[in-house]
Structures are given as C-alpha cells and as structure tokens.
Design a protein around this nucleic acid. Structure first.
Lengths: 224, 224
DNA sequence: AAGGCGTCAAGTGCATACACTTTATGCGAT
DNA sequence: ATCGCATAAAGTGTATGCACTTGACGCCTT
C-alpha cells in the first residue's frame, strides 16, 4: 500500500544526486535562481521529478560548496555574495595563483613548460580573431596547467575550487573593451617568468593578472 | 504497520546530522577509525541508534571535508592520506599561513595587534611549565588571530579548514623534545614582524614555522 | 484598537521500505 | 583443479510517510 515505486525509466550518467547537484549549481551560477531565493525541497523534487532525498543531499553538497545557505529547520536559500566577500575571494584567488605560478616556475618539468608555451602561443590566434569563447577555453586550460605545475595536489585543489566559485563572476569580464588582448599579454608575462624559472616574477605577474580580472569583474558587477 | 516511529527521547543540541558528523569526525581524526576502514551505513546507524538517513548525510559532509572517500554504490571509507598528499597539505598550510601573516602585518587594527601580543606573551608561562595541552590551546588561538587579522573571509576559511584537516597529524608534534620552546620562539618572530608591519618578514617567519612543524610531523608519522 | 495566545498550515528532519548495484559463493563444465 | 556462470546476500540509492519546528493568521482578552 505504501511504496509501489515505479522503476527508474531513464538510466542517467551518474547518480540522481549528482545530476541534481549539477542542475541546481548551473541554475544558481547562471543566475536563473537568484541570490536569496528560497529553495524549497518539495517544489524542487516535484519540478525535477525525483524524491526529496536526492534533492536534500544535493542541497547539502551545494551548501558545502558555498552556493547555498542552509538554516536549520528553515530551508535552503541561494547564497548571497556580498561585494566584500566577492573581493575577498578574488584576493584569495590572486594569492593562490601567485603561489602556483611561483611553484610552477620552480618545479615544472621540461615537458610541462613546453606544453604551457605551446598552448599559450596557440591561443594568440583567438585574440586576433576576437573569439571570446574559444579564448576562454584556452584560458581555463592555461590556469589549470599552472595549478598542476605546482606539483602540489592540495593547492591545486584549492585553486580549482576557488576558481570554479568565481566562474559566474568572471563570466562577463571579456565584455570589457580590449580585455582579451590584455589578458593575453598578462599570460605572456607569466609564461616568460615560468620558463625562465623566475618564481618571484611569475608570482607577481600571476597576482597582478588575477587582481586586474577581479577589478574588472567588480566594475561589471556594480554596473549590473 | 509500517512507521510506528518512536518520538525522539533525547533533545540534542544541534541536529542529528551535525551530531553524527562530529562523532564520526572525532573518531577519524583521533585514529579510532583507521584509514581505509569501511564505513558501513547500516552498522553505523545501528551503532549510534539513528536511521541511515542522517548517517548518509554526515558521510556526505565528511567526504566534502576530505575525511572520507566515497565510491559510488560501494560505500564510504576513512580517507587514506599518502605521505605525498600529507606533504602537499603541509606545504599549502605553510603558504596560507604566510599569506595571512603578510596581510595581518599590513592590515591588523591596533586592537588586533595588541591582542596578538598579549596572548602570545601569556602563553610563555606554559612553555616554562611545559604544559603542552594548555600551550596547544594558545597555539590554536594564535593562528586563528593571524587568519582573522588578514581581513579576508575566504582565505581565513581556507586556512581554518586546511588546519583542521592537518590537526590529527600535528597532534603529536610536541612530543618531540624542546618543540614547545622552539614553537614559541618562532611565534615570537612572527609577532615581531607583524607588530612592525613588516609583511615580508612575517610571511617568511610564518612559512618557516609551519614548514618545521610539517617536517617534525612527517618524522613522527614515519616512526609510527 | 492593540496585544497576546492558540491553532493551523507549510516545510524540514528523520525513519523506514523498496529498488538497484556490487560482490561473494557455490555449482557445473572443461 | 580451475575457470565461468548463476544466484544470493549485503549494502547503497531513492521514495515516501510520520514527527517536529516555524511562521502566520485569527480570535479572544484587556
């Protein structure tokens, strides 16, 4: 009488929880669900045709990621990011990138250095053709290489996480005039320093690069 | 027939999930539950007299914290930390502390500086009396002040989390002869630099301090 | 009329039942 | 004896129901 459950019709890639987590994360970072908005478990479960259990678990994960705030017995809300907190995240990102750049300059293998240089040079064509989304892919790859090159799993993890949390706020950065070329020149400085094995210069260049992105994004955010 | 649920007898402080999370985290970091050990949801639920739901949620939180590894459809295990990964965490900790120390030197308010100095001086008595556990409390407080003093919520968060993940490995550090006095002298250097507003010196002192702790712990871990 | 109190509805928290996956075990074939 | 396969047992994943908390509304009191 109680649970005549229907079998799962659709075989999904991962688990339902993973699916829900991605679904909700997307909607939050793209702004479809706005900061402060209530995330009602029952409505979400109905809306995506699952039970409350995976929704609850997904909300837990999102809360751990900082995308969602949870108040005991009161439900979950899309996290509100204050300008101050946003600034602190950008500053942290700048410091993490600086560390990675320094360590990369000191530790990258010959192969890693070559890879960094090749990919960086390849991305120049997208600057010339002003292909923002293509450039963004290379940009992502570039930073990932820097994190990996540090040869430190934990800091790579921290940097990756922080970067993904900042993703929604960096989204619009290239709309600012000439940003693409400017970004590339900044990358150029980092690459040069890393290839020269100059950790200090690499750190400074990386920190400045991210700091400038942060400023640009802050300008954009406040315009919005 | 199905759910004649008994009312909750004991009113606990937080939610059951929080309780379970703390309980399991304690058992993991204190080594009662050993790395690689399987964490069976059913057994845990029975053992602590709750249902599987809060156990599952707690395991999720612990996985997010890195204390537990989860394999889909295969259960949860106490996370195994390889020496390499441990080293990477200590190195990251050293870099994070260095950043916090630098920013603290630049940004702490007069009141925060005073507080840091007073607490540091007060802790000297525990060095003289060789009171390890008392000193450890002050030590914790000291580092927390450095994180807070950076005036950057996000980096404070990263530092605090990383520190708590390293806690079990730092536990035994003071067993090494003279470590207490050595730690205090290292703190002294950090305090001096911070009070002088010398960010670079503070960063160097903080990085060295943590690096030495890491080395000491590594020695201990390999002895074990 | 305003404030306090009781009641109720909505929604979260936890328990438990069912479905599905993985792994261990036993049996037969080679 | 060993390898494969079938089958079962154990355990995870998901659904759903009941209990408890919280906030809102309306009624009664002053």
């Amino acid at each position: 009488m109680t649970q005549p459950r229907k079998p799962r019709e659709l075989v999904r890639a991962g688990t339902t929880v993973d699916h829900m987590t991605r679904l909700l994360a997307d909607r939050i970072v793209t702004g479809i669900m706005r900061p402060g908005e209530k995330l009602d478990e029952i409505s979400l479960a109905r809306r995506f045709d699952v039970s409350r259990t995976p929704v609850r678990e997904a909300l837990g994960h999102l809360a751990a990621m900082g995308l969602v705030e949870r108040r005991p017995n009161r439900g979950a809300f899309v996290a509100t990011v204050t300008p101050a907190h946003l600034a602190s995240m950008f500053e942290t990102m700048a410091e993490l990138e600086a560390i990675c750049a320094r360590l990369s300059a000191e530790r990258m293998t010959a192969q890693e250095r070559r890879g960094l240089e090749i990919e960086h040079c390849a991305s120049a064509q997208f600057v010339r053709s002003d292909a923002e989304s293509d450039y963004e892919l290379f940009n992502q790859d570039f930073h990932t290489r820097l994190y990996r090159g540090a040869h430190n799993a934990h800091i790579c993890d921290l940097a990756t996480r922080t970067r993904s949390r900042l993703a929604p706020f960096r989204r619009a950065q290239f709309r600012i005039d000439g940003r693409l070329a400017k970004s590339w020149r900044e990358h150029e400085q980092i690459v040069t320093a890393v290839l020269a094995g100059d950790g200090v210069a690499a750190a400074v260049a990386a920190r400045d690069h991210v700091t400038l992105v942060g400023v640009a994004s802050a300008v954009f955010a406040s315009e919005d």
